Amino acid sequence: MATVTRAKIPAREFALYQTLREVPGAEFECERLVESGDGTVMPLIWARGADRETLREAFERDPSVSDVSLLGEFDDELLYRMHWIDQVYLVFQMVTTLEATVIDAYGDEQWWYLRILFPDRDALSRTNDLCESRGLTFEVVRVREMRGDPVGRFGLTREQYEALTMACDRGYFEVPRRTGLDVLADDLDISHQALSERLRRGTDVLVQETLLVGPRGALGESSQ
Rank of each mutant, 00 (worst) to 15 (best):
T127L: 03
V68T: 06
V91I: 14
F59Q: 01
T179E: 09
K8I: 06
Q193T: 15
L79S: 02
L130W: 06
Y17S: 11
T210W: 10
I45K: 04
L70M: 06
S125V: 03
L79P: 01
T96E: 04
L78H: 06
D51M: 05
F138L: 09
P176G: 05
T96G: 03
E22G: 14
L211T: 11
L114W: 06
Y161K: 13
P150Q: 11
E29W: 07
L212S: 06
W46P: 03
H192E: 13
D67F: 04
G155Q: 11
E109Y: 08
T137Y: 00
V183W: 03
L98K: 02
G39H: 06
N128G: 14
C131M: 02
S66A: 15
A194R: 14
G220K: 10
A218E: 08
F118G: 01
P63N: 03
T96K: 03
G155T: 13
R216V: 05
Y161N: 14
L78I: 03
Y80G: 01
T101E: 12
M94S: 01
E22L: 14
F173W: 11
T3R: 12
Y89F: 02
M42S: 15
Q110N: 14
Q208E: 14
L130E: 01
F154P: 00
Y80C: 02
R121N: 08
P43F: 07
P119T: 05
L90M: 09
R6D: 13
T5Q: 02
G152H: 13
L124Q: 12
M94D: 02
A2S: 14
A194Q: 13
D149Y: 07
D38V: 09
E27P: 01
R198H: 12
Q110F: 03
Q160S: 08
D120K: 01
G220H: 07
E27L: 09
E162A: 15
L136D: 03
T179W: 08
D186C: 00
A167I: 10
Y17E: 10
A123K: 09
L136T: 01
G202H: 11
F118P: 04
E60M: 08
T54W: 01
V91P: 00
D204F: 07
L44D: 07
W84C: 07
L164A: 11
K8L: 10
M82T: 11
G25N: 12
P10L: 08
A123N: 04
L156P: 05
A47N: 07
L90K: 05
S125M: 05
G202A: 13
L78W: 04
P176F: 05
E31V: 09
L164H: 12
E145H: 08
T179M: 07
V205N: 08
G135D: 01
Q87S: 12
G152Y: 09
G152M: 12
E77S: 09
E13V: 05
Q110D: 14
L199H: 09
L130M: 11
